[in-house]
């Protein structure tokens, strides 16, 4: 996929299955197909958004990139180095280059540590500071980067609001001076105004530090102003990948269209057509034959029930996994 910018992260054919316990002896072992063949790249200084509904495997992709989960198949490369099969000891020095910000601002900070200790830990792990003064200077710098007052260092996480905690989480991610930050629903738990603050902060930090961001979210609205490219996931697969403009102006896949029609428009006069999906998401344990989206697709036809569509280019910067010849509704 698109390679204008040199890739920092390459994900190739990633699969992650979780085995289910057998219900009785001799039963064939079934598995949850959480991620089922996902490939993408993130360029240096680029933002890629991974969008999809809950349970589609998007967070598992993030955890696998970070080495928090081992993939069942496929590769993850950081700057060309394959990292998914590295033993812990060899992976550790590379961890410095990619960090994570989690969704829940409460459980993502250890309640028993002061902010200073939370931020000092990654610095100490990679020996980025050696004296008390160096530590203090780095921590003060981090707090300043995320726009928290310097006296925040001496406090405990429970003394902060959700948005402030999330910025502490961002400061911790920045502490190792990473090249990539994976934001796993990083703003989903926040109020709208605070959400905007944090998104703007991330965008500013990206400009300032040249960060690459993988933005994992279910909320297309929050992504629109921040992202360069978008990959839409459904049931463990990418169904559409495109640059921002193509995706938001000419969504191709019926699922993407449905997602976009659900984004609220801040104009009460605007008339819009809601596309409401009917039907249930198939179980990721027993996947249907053919297209994964067939049970909910309004344009389903015979071929969708037998053959699984592969990603194909439908525009200069747009790829889609759908059997339809033309863009539906376009």
């Amino acid at each position: 996929m698109m390679n204008e910018m040199p890739a920092v992260i390459e994900v190739i054919g990633l699969k992650k299955y979780f085995p289910l316990p057998r219900r009785h002896p001799g039963q064939a072992r079934s598995q949850v197909h959480a991620v089922d063949g996902v490939s993408f790249t993130i360029g240096r200084g680029e933002t890629l958004s991974l969008v999809g509904e809950s349970g589609c495997g998007k967070s598992t992709v993030g955890r696998t990139i970070l080495g928090l989960a081992k993939p069942t198949a496929g590769e993850v490369r950081l700057d060309g180095i394959r990292i998914d099969n590295l033993p812990r000891r060899k992976l550790r020095p590379l961890r410095r280059r990619m960090q994570v910000v989690f969704q829940d601002p409460y459980s993502s900070l250890n309640p028993r540590l002061r902010v200073r200790e939370i931020l000092a830990e990654p610095i100490a792990n990679f020996s980025l500071a050696h004296s008390r003064a160096e530590f203090s200077a780095r921590i003060a710098g981090l707090l300043q980067k995320v726009r928290l007052p310097a006296d925040a260092a001496a406090r405990f996480p429970h003394e902060f609001s959700g948005g402030q905690r999330q910025r502490i989480g961002i400061a911790r991610a920045l502490a190792t001076e990473p090249e990539v930050i994976i934001c796993d629903e990083a703003v989903s738990a926040l109020d709208v105004s605070v959400k905007a603050q944090v998104v703007n902060l991330l965008a500013d930090l990206q400009d300032e530090l040249g960060l690459s961001l993988l933005f994992i979210t279910h909320d297309l609205a929050i992504v629109e102003h921040l992202t360069h490219r978008v990959a839409v996931m459904y049931l463990g697969r990418i169904v559409e990948a495109a640059d921002r403009d193509s995706l938001f102006t000419r969504p191709w896949h019926p699922y993407t269209q449905a997602l976009l029609s659900a984004v609220p428009v801040p104009d009460p006069a605007a008339s819009r057509q809601r596309m409401i999906l009917k039907g249930d998401v198939p179980s990721p344990v027993d996947l249907p034959r053919g297209c994964r989206f067939q049970s909910r697709c309004p344009h389903v036809f015979a071929r969708c029930r037998t053959e699984e569509p592969e990603l194909r280019a439908v525009g200069e910067a747009q790829w889609v996994a759908c059997h339809l010849d033309r863009r539906p509704g376009g």
Binding site: L68, D104, S108, R112, R172
Partner: peptide, 26 residues
């Protein structure tokens, strides 16, 4: 499974320190 433990692993914290700082106190 707590995010702060996963974040510590991602931030390069070794197992002994992880247990001592993040697990034991809690």
């Amino acid at each position: 499974e707590q995010p702060f433990v996963e974040a510590a692993i991602a931030a390069g914290t070794r197992t002994p320190r992880l247990i001592w700082r993040h697990i034991v106190p809690n």
